[in-house]
């Protein structure tokens, strides 16, 4: 870990809130991107992001510098997402949030014709809807594997489960998605 980061964390642990602002500026984009990949809508992503950093702040005194700081934040975010999804059961598709204009949409391929773009945009909705129909466990595990590229043993460590459990969720999620996306 960089000395500068260690200093920042120690300052936060000592009660310096401005140092926390610096930490949020450093990891904000990464954390928001991951939050969005879990939430699949901007409003929930922002909520998840806020809740993650508030928990990071509240628990920062328990951070012992035994892992990378981002890994620690990531773990809080993932568990929060996992539990939030668990609480809500199936995630609901919500209306665009008030800050939607502050998000940029990345087209799949800039060379695509307009009608192809429209097709892809419609397809994204289909994919998001399919993801939203997975159980919380299946969805979290699948996102961690597919979008985040985590190894099964790492996912098991993050979510405090056995590798066997993670494999079961991953396989079921994959089968279900194949079905929902009509590739079975």
């Amino acid at each position: 870990m960089e000395k500068e980061e260690v200093d920042l964390i120690k300052r936060i642990q000592g009660g310096d809130n401005m140092a926390f602002h610096a930490i949020m500026n450093k990891y904000g984009s990464r954390v928001m991107n991951v939050a969005y990949s879990f939430a699949k809508n901007t409003q929930d992503a922002e909520d998840l992001y806020q809740e993650t950093f508030i928990r990071v702040f509240r628990n920062i005194k328990s951070f012992r510098f035994e892992s990378e700081f981002y890994t620690w934040i990531y773990r809080i975010l993932t568990n929060l997402a996992y539990n939030q999804f668990k609480k809500k059961g199936r995630m609901q598709v919500v209306d665009p949030g008030e800050n939607d204009y502050l998000w940029e949409t990345i087209p799949g391929d800039k060379e695509d014709e307009a009608d192809v773009q429209t097709y892809k945009s419609a397809f994204k909705e289909e994919v998001d809807n399919a993801l939203l129909q997975l159980s919380s466990q299946q969805r979290t595990v699948f996102i961690l594997k597919h979008y985040e590229g985590k190894k099964i043993k790492d996912i098991a460590a993050i979510l405090d489960c056995t590798e066997g459990t993670i494999k079961r969720y991953l396989f079921r999620a994959t089968r279900k998605l194949q079905d929902l996306l009509h590739v079975a």
Binding site: G28, S29, M32, N33, Y36, T42, A45, L102, W103, E104, T105, I106, P107, G108, Q117, K120, S121, F123, K124, V127
Partner: peptide, 8 residues
Amino acid sequence: DTPDKVPT
């Protein structure tokens, strides 16, 4: 292959 969103 789906378009996605990123925060500004």
